[in-house]
Design a protein around this nucleic acid. Sequence first.
DNA 1: GTAGTTTCTAAACCTAACTTTAGGTCAAGG
DNA 2: CCTTGACCTAAAGTTAGGTTTAGAAACTAC
Lengths: 151, 151
Amino acid sequence: MAVSEGLAIGALARRTGLAVSAIRYYEAQGLISPWRNAGGQRRYQRADIRRLSFVMIAQQFGLTLPEIREVLSDLPGNRTPTPKDWKDISIRLRTHLDQRIDTLMRLRDNLDGCIGCGCLSLPKCALYNPDDRAKSHGSGPRYLMGDAPEG
Amino acid sequence: MAVSEGLAIGALARRTGLAVSAIRYYEAQGLISPWRNAGGQRRYQRADIRRLSFVMIAQQFGLTLPEIREVLSDLPGNRTPTPKDWKDISIRLRTHLDQRIDTLMRLRDNLDGCIGCGCLSLPKCALYNPDDRAKSHGSGPRYLMGDAPEG
DNA sequence: GTAGTTTCTAAACCTAACTTTAGGTCAAGG
DNA sequence: CCTTGACCTAAAGTTAGGTTTAGAAACTAC
């Protein structure tokens, strides 16, 4: 059997460490596009191993699946991505990561200020600035505001 | 009406910016414990404004509600927390934040190495080390592993 | 004392990122 | 041929962190 027959989903799962169900889910989310063999089963390219690896790495960095799809859309659609292609989108990924780190470091600086003043609940506290919020995972309270000083 | 009658849930919601439903949910999660008035309605202390503020700040830092409950459990149960009490647990919060920042910075360093080598899918790639994973929000694939080199 | 606003509980619903289940099909080996 | 394991789809279930809904009871103001 030639290489061109591709990988079955189970083989891809073993190569990436992902669950078969996760790979099908990623397909539903538009992150990967296998073709079908005569019997209707999914077949994948070897390059898809790398693609899914990228998905997993980007997830560690806190990107959502739609964000990852966005980043992946910069890969060439007409040919197998080269190392250079991967390098380019990895640099985009680094930008995301830098932003997350910056946000957390700014929060840390603010917290340090608040530890010093002991306020933790004043409107002027920088930690209450809604624009600073990390939006760590979509859900959570919708806005932040302080209370009046206790006196 | 004396101050000792406490705040109604709607008042606390306005003071913190949280939804009434969120405050009730936090109670169900053990983050706050109001008493009830004669009619069965929840009544809160003024100190609870600060408590909820702390919850919101800790959420920005990426702590889960169980983790926040853990941190809050260090507050004295028998009296209203003092500024010193808040300062102490804020320092604990800072530790959490430091760890998150460290993890992300290590990931960034690894990514830089990978951008250089262009691998992105080799077992030896540091990004595939399961121990490094950020566990950014509970769900997601359970383990990571690489594929064999393509040759 | 009654209208209007809050609050109450319980249960259902929501999103993200998956997994599990149910019932059926495909592929490989003997 | 027949069995066994991998694969298929669709739908329901799961966790976190909440929101929404429904119907009832409690405050508040006039």
